[in-house]
């Protein structure tokens, strides 16, 4: 049952210390800024954050990192021209980093959401990122075992939702959000528009409401 929250603070209520939190976005595109700001106010700490990047500039995920709430980041591409918050935390030994190939990151979350216990991928074979991981030859090709990434919470942004939690996205702001929505115990979505049940074309719904626990409307 999807809950339509009155405020972003209501939407992030109850996120526990030590949670694993999936944060949508590719850079700042699709990043759920309002939910992250609310999470900073809410105060949960010792978080493991899974996101494609490790924060840009001083807002959004970077602000959560700067507030000292994140113990570990799992991402594909932390180092960017504007990732100074993460860079400083990493270089001073105040944050852990797990780097994952971007496709493996996405597929590990997909596996968690789909009840799959792991996946064999050719990505990473023979590289530093496969060290210590099981490998297996299948059909004459070598694969590396990657384990699912299941989370306590997903924070994502969508373009529009109906009160049942059905979601549509806009352009490349979709990125990781549909996969993250499936992989968390509690999926929390900030949307620019809440429409009536029946207003979304069922053929166009990208994330069915079964994956969505809380939605909150924020200014577009």
């Amino acid at each position: 049952m999807t809950q339509l929250c009155a405020s972003v603070d209501d939407a992030v209520a109850g996120i526990a210390d030590g949670s694993t939190v999936l944060v949508g976005g590719f850079g700042i595109t699709g990043m759920p800024f309002a939910l992250i700001d609310a999470l900073i106010r809410q105060g949960a700490q010792d978080l493991t954050v899974v996101s494609n990047n490790a924060g840009n500039g001083d807002t959004g995920l970077a602000a959560l990192l700067a507030a000292g709430r994140v113990r570990k980041v799992v991402c594909s591409f932390p180092r960017q021209t504007d990732s100074w918050v993460f860079d400083e935390l990493y270089r001073s030994g105040r944050i852990e980093l797990e780097v994952a190939p971007q496709g493996s990151l996405a597929e590990r979350m997909r596996a968690a959401g789909a009840g799959i216990g792991g996946l064999y991928t050719p990505t990473g074979v023979g590289t530093l990122l496969a060290e210590g991981k099981e490998t297996r030859e299948i059909g004459g090709r070598e694969y590396v075992l990657e384990l699912p990434i299941a989370a306590d919470v997903a924070l994502i942004a969508a373009h529009a939702a109906d009160p049942l939690g059905n979601l549509v996205y806009r352009k490349t702001a979709r990125n990781f959000a549909p996969v993250m929505a499936t992989a968390a115990t509690t999926t929390i979505v900030q949307v620019a528009h809440v429409v009536e049940v029946g207003d979304l074309d069922p053929e166009a719904v990208v994330t069915p409401g079964i994956y969505v626990d809380r939605i909150v409307q924020v200014a577009a």
Binding site: F26, G27, I28, T29, N52, G103, E107, K171, T172, R174
Partner: peptide
Amino acid sequence: DPDLINAGKLPVTELPGASYFHHADSFA
């Protein structure tokens, strides 16, 4: 359009016939 970027996170455009999909599909 801030919702329409490329892998380098720079703004791009869409051509007629474009399609969007999520990250797991993109890497599949």
